[in-house]
């Protein structure tokens, strides 16, 4: 970036993003144990518009929308996190091994990887879901997790490939450090610079992809609930209860926005280090 751009400290993006995200996560975690109303109780009057009692109003069954969103967001969060964990673990494992050892395996795997990353991940995920059976949160996690592996593998590999010939690695090797030690103690901590922003982007993609799939009815289905599934419900009653769709949709936007800002700050910081 140019000199002028650094007039904003990347930390400020990081802080604003972290504040938004932490608040949301706090609400979600509290919501796992306690919500103002029972998210399943159908007794608060149908289609109540937002008020002090029900800040996001109630739905067609008379359930409190805020409590439902908090619960649904919890599912979304768990699914997105599990997805990122699968994708990152698989990707980092493959990427670090191929990047560190190189050779023919590296060439072949990275070719396959390039082909897979060129492929729209959403289509790939749809395909996997249709193969393992649609309509369950486990297939969503599996499909999205698998789909995210290639991009993490690519990022890790290129970092490893550029780091492995640095002096501190050669030095470690000369003092007799084994491959495992070099990979985990010397190389992996140094990839955080690029992996952390990749994790935030992966998380956001996971949230959006899960929401899309559940919206389409091939992701999370009742009795489970997620923000995407709730939006598909909200759509059918948007003319009667627009607050339902708006509050659910804006919750997704806010979650992705907060994490996105964190990613922006991390990326800017990584650039500054360069």
């Amino acid at each position: 970036m140019t000199k002028k751009d650094s007039s904003i400290d990347p930390k400020s993006f990081l802080i604003v993003g972290a504040v938004i995200t932490l608040l949301l996560v706090l609400v979600i975690i509290v919501g796992m144990f306690w919500t103002p109303y029972s998210p399943t109780a159908m007794k608060y009057g149908r289609f109540q518009s937002p008020s002090w009692n029900h800040i996001f109003g109630t739905d067609n069954f008379g359930r409190d929308i805020f409590s439902r969103i908090v619960k649904g967001a919890g599912n979304t969060l768990v699914i997105a996190l599990s997805t990122v964990i699968i994708g990152a673990a698989g990707g980092i494992l493959i990427g670090s091994l191929t990047g560190y050892f190189g050779g023919a395996v590296d060439v072949v795997l990275m070719r396959v990887n390039d082909a897979l990353t060129a492929f729209p991940s959403f289509l790939l995920a749809l395909l996997i879901v249709s193969l393992v059976g649609p309509g369950s949160k486990y297939s969503v996690v599996l499909a999205l997790g698998l789909v995210f592996i290639p991009s993490f593998a690519r990022v890790t590999r290129s970092e490893f490939a550029s780091l492995r010939s640095r002096n501190f690695v050669t030095g470690a090797r000369l003092t007799g450090a084994g491959h495992a030690r070099i990979i985990f103690v010397y190389l992996l901590p140094n990839t955080g610079r690029v992996l952390l922003p990749a994790l935030t982007i992966g998380f956001n993609n996971a949230v959006l992809a899960e929401a899309s799939m559940s919206f389409l009815g091939i992701g999370v289905t009742p009795p489970d609930s997620s923000l995407g599934y709730m939006l598909s419900e909200a759509q059918s009653m948007v003319s009667i209860a627009p607050w339902y769709a708006l509050s659910t949709g804006l919750s997704i936007v806010l979650l992705v926005f907060g994490v996105g800002l964190i990613g922006e700050g991390l990326q800017a910081r990584a650039k500054e280090v360069d």
Binding site: A211, S212, F215, A234, A245, V256
Partner: peptide, 11 residues
């Protein structure tokens, strides 16, 4: 980037 197309679609 945070606005999912299906949400704008509903709106």
């Amino acid at each position: 980037m945070a606005i999912p197309p299906f949400f704008t679609g509903i709106v």
